[in-house]
């Protein structure tokens, strides 16, 4: 059998997904035995022009991580979609927007004003901003266009498989790699390397009746290790989040923040989370409810931590 042709790319991302692939450790040699890698900027020296020269569908599988933040990300997404038989949205940024997607609280100007002007460590009295085109004595330099709104990969090009996680856990990556090599992938459009049910199903903590009279913030308490975090008043996104991670954060005594995205039947992870939190508030009058809700400081940044671009509202109105 001919070796698989593999491409890995990152758009707006942190590189943690690349490290998650490397965390396969010695199994990476099995990957190398089954596949040749044709593009992987973090690890190998291929240029964009090499990719442009491939014929369409040259690549068998493209693992694309990162959100689409600017015109370069969009260009590479479209290029690699055309050159690849199978496109995999790899990691939470590509699947849902991820942490870079939180930038949808602002627009292009809002981000630029802060980054290139207001930050205490910035001295930019000339008000210099990135330009898409700039003429220097030797010629013209170009930069990508920075969008107002961060997009997911799926909002940019058709995606065959979604492998979420921030980053995806290694054993799930390995399972998917094996499925790819064996040609045993599920129908296109599926999520892979995930559990069917929520993080709560994987969470080993004891769950009893959930009635919360006061929410606490993670720095205010050391949670009991055996009892459901929500029952202890900590906002935990487990109920609205797809499992597959093995409840890693919860097992480290930290509440879930939803990186595996919504479960199969949920449209909007944040709305579902909001609903789950509201249903455990132990109050039966408006003033009592308000008192408890006031303790939840950042619903948007907590319930949409990894999925603002993938949400129904997509972004904040500015």
């Amino acid at each position: 059998m001919a070796k698989l042709k593999l491409a890995l790319y990152w758009a707006a991302t942190c590189g943690g997904c690349e490290v998650a692939v490397l965390d396969l450790n010695e199994k990476i040699l099995d990957v190398a035995a089954a596949a040749d890698i044709y593009l992987w900027p973090v690890a190998m020296d291929y240029k964009y022009k090499d990719a442009e020269a491939w014929h369409d569908k040259f690549i068998d599988v493209c693992l694309f991580n990162g959100a689409i933040r600017n015109s370069e990300g969009e260009h590479l997404a479209k290029l690699l979609r055309a050159k690849s038989k199978v496109m995999v949205a790899f990691g939470s940024c590509a699947c849902f927007g991820g942490i870079p997607g939180l930038a949808n609280v602002a627009d292009r100007e809002g981000v630029f004003a802060r980054v290139y002007g207001e930050t205490p460590s910035t001295d930019n009295s000339d008000g210099t901003r990135p330009q898409t085109s700039f003429t220097v004595p030797e010629g013209e330099l170009t930069l990508p266009y920075f969008y107002d709104t961060v997009k997911t990969l799926g909002q940019t090009v058709p995606v065959d498989y979604f492998l979420p996680g921030c980053p995806p856990v290694t054993k799930q990556i390995w399972a998917v790699v094996q499925a790819i090599v064996a040609g045993q992938l599920p129908p296109p459009g599926s999520f892979v390397g995930v559990a069917e049910k929520s993080v709560c199903e994987e969470c080993p903590r004891v769950k009893e009746e959930k009635k919360v009279t006061a929410f606490v913030r993670p720095h205010q308490v050391i949670p009991q290790p055996e009892k459901c975090l929500l029952e202890q008043g900590l906002i935990c996104c487990g109920p609205a989040t797809r499992g597959g991670c093995g409840a890693q954060c919860v097992n480290a005594n930290m509440p879930c923040r939803g990186c595996y995205g919504p479960t199969e039947r949920v449209t909007d992870q944040g709305a579902k989370m909001l609903s789950a939190i509201a249903s455990i508030i132990d109050a039966t009058d408006e003033a009592g409810v308000k008192k408890v809700v006031d303790q939840i400081v950042d619903p948007l940044g907590t319930f949409y931590r990894f999925g603002l671009p993938n949400s129904l509202l997509t972004r904040v109105r500015v």
Binding site: V105, G270, L274, A278, S279, I296, D298, P299
Partner: peptide, 17 residues
């Protein structure tokens, strides 16, 4: 349940502008 959801939803919507 509607009464419990509403204030939290409003808080989130306010953040959405």
């Amino acid at each position: 349940n509607a009464m419990r959801r509403y204030p939290l939803l409003m808080k989130a919507l306010e953040q959405f502008g």
